[in-house]
Design a protein around this nucleic acid. Structure first.
Lengths: 229, 229
DNA sequence: GATAGTTTCATACAAATGTTTGAAAAGCAA
DNA sequence: TTGCTTTTCAAACATTTGTATGAAACTATC
């Protein structure tokens, strides 16, 4: 069928344009011009502009989520059913960072598209992102198995901070590059993942804190003290 | 002059509407209706819609930045010219978190506006945010004084991660609340600041890493080992 | 090769939106 | 008041945008 051809052309053109110029700047007319198809084709094949954007985003999200879960499963098998907290963190932030960072950024339209999606936050994407919670729960469950007895809130904060560092690095990589005047190497993805994982595990294994009183900093006079888990 | 009155009414109405409904959903006609002024008044007083948004954002940014620098200066005076790394981190993330989180969120239109600005990232605001680097350099300088001899890149990564945790907590507080089923207390701002500062300082004082090889995780088998600075 | 279903196309539609205009109103100094 | 500037106002402008339409072209099945 030639119809699939048109569909694919639209998807590819849209992803490329959105990746390059952002959601706000790209109109349906831009997309159909890039794809060499008729204006009406978008509504015919996707129903609406928002549904086109949604399809682009879910496709890429599913890919990332699958990678994450594969890594998680591999880590669990390696550990005989129970993955280490470090491997779990690595499975959580690795795929995203590997997909969106690195020197070969120019080749990957998908990566640049996901970065845009992370920065601009347009309605159809926001709606989908809300479902991401279910996906994250699987990681929370794995973390609970890896750190039994640990307070649940601590687990969630650790998960949250890990995502914070990963996503913020993707979102603000230009700024960090400029701020550090190139001293932070944003191309060494392996090192960045190690760094994020290390800090995340540290945050998670910090000090065991009694449930009620607020977590108190364990740092005194710029010096670090801690008790093991 | 009644002109200032109109100006202020527009600013107040715009901030309220943007805070409540986001930038994408609010038109100039919505704003002038809320402010009870004429449609043309916006262009007369601000030149354009984008300049109105920009003015809103710079006003609030200046406030936050001033608070940050005040805290930083206080910390430096307290330490006799050299602030501790912990106090620096606190000055960096404290004002933002205090401004945007907490149970009295309903009262503060400004806070909700800044959260929106952090989530939606509209062009006029993006342009301004680029200038934020100069502001952050002051904190980098303070950090360098607090941790002399430390590798610059490590400093920037620490600064970057601190902002990551703070901003991501603001951006995704709804998701974290839902993910943790309320177990993470997003109202206890004091505790959140402590938590972010603690992890930030940990990340900064981690292990001293030789400059060339990539930072290697110091966590082995889910167990934490570290060497002091 | 006729027919039914699918896809493409040019064009039109309709609504929204930021901006401009030119006159009226208000403020203010002489 | 008079004359000037500043501000307000209703209305119109000019685009841009996503979407809908109906006919034409194409495809496949019988």
């Amino acid at each position: 069928m030639a119809s699939d051809q048109t569909r694919s052309a639209i998807l590819a053109a849209a992803e490329r344009l959105y990746a390059d110029r952002g959601f706000g700047d790209v109109t349906l007319r831009d997309i159909v011009a890039e794809a060499n198809v008729n204006l009406a084709a978008v509504n015919y094949h996707f129903g609406s502009k928002d549904e086109l954007i949604a399809e682009l985003f879910v496709t890429r999200s599913i890919q990332t989520n699958r990678e994450r879960l594969n890594e998680l499963k591999a880590a669990e098998e390696k550990g005989g059913g129970r993955a280490s907290i470090e491997d779990i963190m690595r499975a959580l932030v690795g795929p995203t960072l590997r997909g969106c960072l690195g020197p070969d950024r120019e080749g990957s339209t998908a990566a640049r598209f996901m970065i845009r999606a992370s920065i601009e936050s347009v309605p159809p994407i926001r709606r989908i992102k809300n479902r991401e919670v279910d996906h994250l729960r699987k990681f929370a469950a794995a973390m609970r198995r890896a750190m039994p007895g640990r307070d649940d809130a601590e687990l969630y904060w650790g998960l949250h901070f890990a995502l914070a560092m990963a996503h913020h690095t993707i979102r603000e990589k230009e700024r960090l590059l400029r701020l550090s005047e190139g001293k932070c190497d944003l191309d060494d993805v392996r090192a960045i993942i190690d760094r994020v994982v290390t800090v995340s595990v540290m945050a998670l294994t910090m000090n065991d804190v009694p449930s009620k009183p607020a977590l108190r900093p364990v740092v005194v006079h710029g010096r670090l003290t801690r008790q093991d888990l």
